[in-house]
């Protein structure tokens, strides 16, 4: 359904001395209808950027995105806007997701209005689906709690019956108990409506719960990708291994180590789709400067160790 091919996103700043940040470094990604692909990585790994890239909210520096057979990177603005009805975003900060001067009703109805759909009953249908009450509609964003706002954001994202929704860390700003509610809601809605999710998170446990497949991102590249349980249960790429191990707080803190924190390289400064960026890998060798994803038992790993 959705395919990203050789995607690059480079941010440049500065007038004379240009500073480059390569947020997305040569990524191939595919999401099938109705499935949930979890995109995990630490902050700065580029996962949010990739999510927005796939929605064409940011223009890729290079690469193609094919949605339902159509290359959306080549679309004219008007056509792109029409395509947007099928792909939506649930942002990370629920309290920022809606115009603070608009009532919730108006915010949820906005997508309908933009596309000329004259059906305000749909708003009531939507809040029913997400578990909000009518009284919430009449309020302003600053009068709702985080969980309620996130439900409203979900309602709004569903207004146009999208096929694909990018959930950008939807629960990282929410309390643990509210997180459970929202995640269950998302799963429920997926079952009912057959939506595909790109679920972006830094929390591996949540990723495992939500996802069929998982893609691990580091410094703008996908280092390992495959069935969620298998990848997290038996990681191949050294970085994935580190991530999985860090889950066990108990074990980690009891180990003897230096107090020097592990330096994490996030976005690189050179576009280099071929080189593995995990410089602190204990297994690093000269082969690592030119490595592509290798298929291994139903997953794709970008590491010499997979050979």
């Amino acid at each position: 359904m959705l395919k990203g091919e050789k995607l690059y996103k480079v941010f440049e700043s500065g007038f004379i001395k240009k500073k480059k940040i390569v947020a997305v470094d040569g990524i191939d990604i595919e999401i099938k209808e109705g499935e949930t692909l979890a995109l995990v990585g630490e902050s700065g790994s580029g996962k949010s950027t990739l999510g927005r890239l796939l929605l064409m909210l940011i223009k890729p520096t290079r690469g193609k995105i094919i949605f339902d057979g159509v290359d959306i990177t080549a679309l004219k603005p008007k056509e792109l806007r029409k395509t947007r009805t099928k792909m939506q975003l649930i942002p990370q900060h629920p309290d920022e997701a809606m115009d603070p001067r608009w009532k919730i009703f108006d915010s949820i109805a906005e997508p309908l209005k933009i596309h000329g759909i004259d059906d305000f009953d749909r708003v009531y249908e939507l809040i029913d689906m997400v578990g909000l009450k009518e009284e919430h509609l009449d309020r302003f964003p600053h009068e709702l709690s985080g969980g309620e706002l996130q439900r409203a954001a979900i309602a709004r994202a569903l207004a146009l019956n999208p096929k694909f929704v990018v959930c950008d860390e939807p629960t990282s700003m929410l309390d643990v108990s509210v997180q459970a509610q929202i995640l269950r809601l998302l799963i429920d809605l997926q079952r009912k409506l057959g939506i595909a999710y790109l679920f972006i998170t830094h929390d591996l446990e949540v990723a495992e719960f939500m996802a069929d497949r998982i893609a691990v991102m580091y410094a703008g590249q996908i280092v390992e990708e495959g069935n969620a349980e298998k990848v997290l249960g038996d990681p191949v790429h050294p970085y994935t291994k580190t991530l999985v191990e860090s889950l066990d707080l108990e074990r980690n803190t009891n180990e003897v180590e230096s107090t020097e924190p592990r330096k994490v390289l996030v976005a690189g400064v050179e576009e280099n789709g071929k080189e593995c960026k995990y410089y602190q890998c204990p297994y690093r060798s000269s082969k690592c400067s030119n490595i592509e994803a290798i298929a291994l038992n139903g997953r794709r790993v970008r590491c010499v160790l997979a050979e």
Partner: peptide, 23 residues
């Protein structure tokens, strides 16, 4: 984020400017 969200809905620049940014 609310402006980005509106863009994600398929709003035109005009819409965003006059309904969200200017107010």
């Amino acid at each position: 984020e609310f402006v980005v969200s509106t863009r994600a809905m398929g709003a035109s620049d005009f819409w965003i400017l006059f309904k969200h940014i200017i107010p």
